[in-house]
Design a binder for these strands. Structure first.
Lengths: 218, 218
DNA sequence: TAGATTGTTAATCGATTAACAATC
DNA sequence: TAGATTGTTAATCGATTAACAATC
């Protein structure tokens, strides 16, 4: 490990890639891949430089590899999981209409990635009584009362844009500490002590337009 | 403009923020905001440093501001739009089941962000004959025959994971040059000459778990 | 031992911030 | 002219890549 970085926060870029390696290793385990793997194999699968991979792995608490050999798939996956503070099934709350959440869960296979869809809250009054994965969808205002006791720390927001800020505020006051906002919304107010990650579909698309129109390959 | 950067590709970070400013300015225009705005106002709204904003804007082809005054909302928006090669309504193709696409369009208000949902292709045989926004959903295999003539260059893929690679391949051979993949999929093969941006919901979530569990505020 | 691959330190590259002159 | 804010160059900071010693 980098002795000097012991007390420094993990750089965002490294953190994101560690999560990516965790996904890849989970994939390989599910596919029955066995034995040792090398930083080169990981790098090739993901289109990265192998030095980047090794450097990233040096942020882990223990030394993960064996020189001349490589890394054990299962052991490395577990180490990254611990470093990321991931429980074996990481519980997530979802905020959005039942239809939208169902759609999201149809292309984002949460269990395969090690998550558990643990609670659902909808802004749509018509969703009263609707059940997803055996769990009843709660009205959005129930976030305060329901969520506090459940020990869930991370939530996904996919409401209509008009409900995004309110959802974030409710989640924050219910003790949620990390929020991933999928709904494109330009300006949001981030409550104190909460990490908010915004996915920006429109920005990603607009960037693509620039590249697509001959503005240099990169 | 930075004279030395005239032939260099725009750095990804700058490109993404320029797209973000474009979204913000569109928002402000729709809200009826008038007159001049400063780099400080833009920075404050987005939680950025004002120098970053000015530096980013210096990548534009013409000089966008007036010293001592600021920037014209409409003029700046137009300049960024031109720099990004954005038509006034940028056409996008969507690949995914009709239900999922409808859900996506319910929280991502494409027109408000300056896009046009121009074509729909579904992997689900049950979607034959379904219409979205007055446009018939085509089977996924029709991508090759239909898309070529439409002049669409950018597509969004939100299929079930098992259809992602096939969709990308079809889109690429139909002449699509930029693809945004929303479906979480760890390893994908990127065809020659196509820009593929992957949104990685699982990685964003796993990163949040790390931060949420006391691993330093950043 | 020889071959392979890791882990770490150093060098490069890119992105952000600071300082300041230009000018409206 | 004075105040404000831009645009640009220089300085810092962070992230990636290269070089290489350590060791399985």
């Amino acid at each position: 490990m980098h002795k000097l970085q012991e007390l420094r926060p993990t750089p965002p870029a490294v953190l994101h890639r560690l999560a990516l390696y965790h996904c890849l290793l989970t994939d390989w385990l599910l596919a029955g891949k066995k034995g040792a793997i090398t930083s080169k194999e990981i790098a090739n699968a993901l289109g990265l430089n192998e030095v980047t991979v090794r450097n990233d792995l040096s942020f882990l608490n223990e030394t993960p590899g064996k020189r001349g050999v490589g890394y054990g798939i299962d052991g490395l996956r577990q180490m990254i999981g611990e470093f990321l503070s991931l429980p074996s099934l990481a519980p997530i709350a979802f905020v959005g209409s039942a239809t939208v959440i169902n759609s999201l869960l149809s292309f984002f296979l949460v269990e395969k990635f090690g998550f558990l869809s643990a609670a659902f809250f909808s802004e749509d009054p018509n969703d009263r009584g609707v059940v997803i994965n055996g769990r009843e969808v709660q009205p959005i205002e129930a976030i305060s009362s329901e969520l506090g006791s459940m020990g869930i720390k991370v939530a996904v927001v996919v409401t209509h844009p008009s409900w995004v800020q309110h959802s974030i505020n409710l989640l924050a006051s219910a003790g949620i500490k990390g929020i991933l906002v999928l709904t494109p919304s330009v300006v949001i107010d981030i409550p104190e002590g909460v990490y908010v990650t915004q996915i920006r579909i429109p920005c990603d698309l607009k960037s693509l337009f620039h590249r697509v129109n001959g503005n240099v390959f990169n």
